[in-house]
Deep mutational scan, measured.
Amino acid sequence: AVSDRLIGRKSVVMEAISPQNSGLVKVDGETWRATSGTVLDVGEEVSVKAIEGVKLVVEKLE
């Protein structure tokens, strides 16, 4: 599936994300709604860990 190619990809937070609120990330020039178990600020680099419905699950790059 097209979405499977996103797992493991680097992306950049475009709208802040917290455990309570989804935000936005940009992956390969496309904007996606995303969630995370931690707070992520605009501009942080993250990695796509999973896809749940139409949202990406991301975490901060170490």
Rank of each mutant, 00 (worst) to 15 (best):
W32E: 09
G23A: 01
I17D: 02
G29W: 04
V39R: 10
A1G: 12
G29Q: 07
V13E: 03
G43R: 01
E62G: 12
E59H: 06
K60I: 06
L56I: 05
I51H: 05
I7L: 09
V58H: 00
Q20D: 11
S22C: 14
V39S: 13
G37L: 13
T38F: 10
D4E: 13
T35Q: 06
V58F: 00
S22E: 15
G29D: 12
V57C: 06
L56V: 07
D28M: 09
N21W: 09
S47T: 15
E30L: 07
T38P: 01
E52P: 02
S11V: 15
K55P: 00
L61A: 09
E44Q: 10
D41N: 13
T35K: 07
G8K: 03
M14P: 02
M14L: 14
R5V: 07
I17Y: 02
R33H: 14
A50Q: 07
E52N: 11
E45D: 06
E45P: 07
D28R: 03
K55M: 15
G8T: 03
S36F: 00
E15K: 09
G8V: 03
D41Y: 13
G53P: 03
S18A: 06
I51C: 05
L40D: 02
S3F: 11
V2W: 13
Q20E: 13
T38K: 07
G29P: 00
E30G: 05
E59F: 00
N21L: 11
K55Y: 15
S47H: 13
R5P: 07
V39Y: 15
V57W: 08
D4Q: 13
V25A: 04
S22D: 15
S47R: 15
S36R: 00
S18M: 06
E44A: 09
E45L: 14
S36G: 05
V58D: 02
G43V: 02
E52S: 10
L56P: 03
G23K: 00
L40K: 01
L40P: 01
I17K: 01
V42K: 07
V12Y: 07
M14G: 02
I51M: 08
I51Q: 06
V27S: 04
I7A: 04
N21H: 14
D28K: 01
A50G: 11
L6M: 08
V54Q: 14
A1I: 12
V48S: 01
V46H: 01
K55N: 14
T38H: 13
L61R: 07
P19C: 08
T31N: 11
L24Y: 11
E44D: 10
V12F: 06
L24P: 01
E44N: 05
E44R: 04
T38D: 15
